[in-house]
Nucleic acid binder design. Structure first.
Ligand SMILES: [Mn+2]
Ligand SMILES: [Mn+2]
Ligand SMILES: [Mn+2]
Ligand SMILES: [Mn+2]
Lengths: 218, 218
DNA sequence: TAAAATAGTTAGGTTAGTCTAACAAATATT
DNA sequence: AATATTTGTTAGACTAACCTAACTATTTTA
């Protein structure tokens, strides 16, 4: 039995350690900050998760997920993204509203529910933020993505995903007329602060470098 | 903030005290048995619920829900029954599988989710067991129901709901070819033990009085 | 109405998940 | 290398939700 809280720790670890980015482990303080709890709390929890063989870690050492822990994290992420897709496509939730509710729904325990939800949604491959949905076997398709920052002046690209899925970022994106699959033309880059002038649906706007870093395109 | 556990206590109290049956309050042991916890645990919880003004009770006295407590219980029941309907109608869950998962889903907190789910299901009035679904205002339609036991010999009736929604009962019903809206003809009642011979889809079977008491018909 | 049975309460304990405050280890800086 | 900073651990406390064992109050029944 893995509790909801434990699942949230596993998921956090999975997100903090992304092999493809070369980050293979995490620290106590880092995890604590990510989960908005105190390091002492994380320390206690790590002992429990180690006992259950979900993480591997030694006193003062770095934290990594075991195979088992990783598999469980991926299953939770699969549920999270399927629910987000459901909320967005079937229940008319907006881009920025899905995450919070999915944070709760991802912990519902029912094998049949996940399988049927997946089928009901026609086995979607990405969630409303463009993130890949692991399949029933726990396989997560890695999608090659570059950010808006890398796009050359004059070129047009298409938004495939976003990095930050906070409501504040998403609401800003909506205001600019930007959503999944939106065509974005990069007009000019200002070397001074890295901000970029873009054109979306014949409307020009200038966005900050920070914004551009959070937009994945192809 | 009403916790999941607290919600389960409120729901239990709502089900144990049905004004229409003249049962206006409940006891500690009764609640404990219903929830499969010990009386001491219920006693602790009652103090908390009283503090939150969700139940009204005095030491050694009977327990009743306050207006607030009742409203909250009805909201949870609304969610439970909407989710059961969703699972049954959209995700191909069977009659006997919906309850357990709904027991988890009923605690998800999101006003928009409930509203949209209701709309998505086209504002259903009854759940897959024939129980009425409270509307958005918390109004619960009372459905006049008699049981199979009351039906006269020779008459035909239609199943509108069931009392016991345990998997064992439901699976038995399925085996007999009985579901929501099934036509049932009462052929003969054996006075010896109250068992009844019925005809369903041209197939005759004999069911116990206990079974008949759990079947609501019109 | 006294004894027996049932119902309800209290005291003291446990586990999960959180905290603060004090401390120890590891790493970075001068 | 010594010191300062950052990172991680421990001890001790708290709350929610549960338990057992012992007790008390209420209700039933002989
Ligand atoms: Mn999300
Ligand atoms: Mn979560
Ligand atoms: Mn149910
Ligand atoms: Mn429940």
């Amino acid at each position: 039995m893995v509790s909801q809280t434990e699942e949230n720790y596993l998921k956090a670890l999975f997100h903090l350690t992304n092999e493809t980015i070369g980050k293979i482990d995490a620290g106590t303080n880092e995890l604590a900050a990510f989960l908005s709890v105190k390091p002492a709390t994380v320390n206690d929890m790590l002992k429990k998760l180690k006992e259950k063989e979900l993480v591997s870690y030694e006193k003062y050492g770095k934290i990594t997920l075991t195979q088992q822990g990783k598999a469980h994290a991926v299953e939770v992420i699969r549920k999270h993204r399927l629910w987000e897709t459901f909320l967005y496509e079937k229940l008319a939730f907006s881009w920025d509203e899905v995450h919070e509710v999915a944070e709760q729904l991802e912990h519902i325990r029912s094998k049949k529910l996940v399988e049927q939800l997946d089928r009901f949604l026609n086995f979607p491959e990405v969630d409303p933020h463009g993130d890949p949905i692991p399949n029933a076997k726990g396989q997560l398709k890695f999608i090659q993505r570059s950010t808006l920052v890398q796009v050359e002046e004059g070129k047009t690209c298409q938004l495939v995903a976003i990095k930050d899925s906070s409501a504040s970022f998403l609401q800003y994106a909506v205001q600019l007329g930007i959503g999944l699959s939106t065509q974005i033309k990069v007009l000019h880059r200002f070397d001074f602060d890295g901000s970029i002038e873009i054109e979306v649906n014949n409307k020009r706007s200038t966005v900050s470098q920070k914004f551009a870093e959070n937009v994945y395109v192809k």
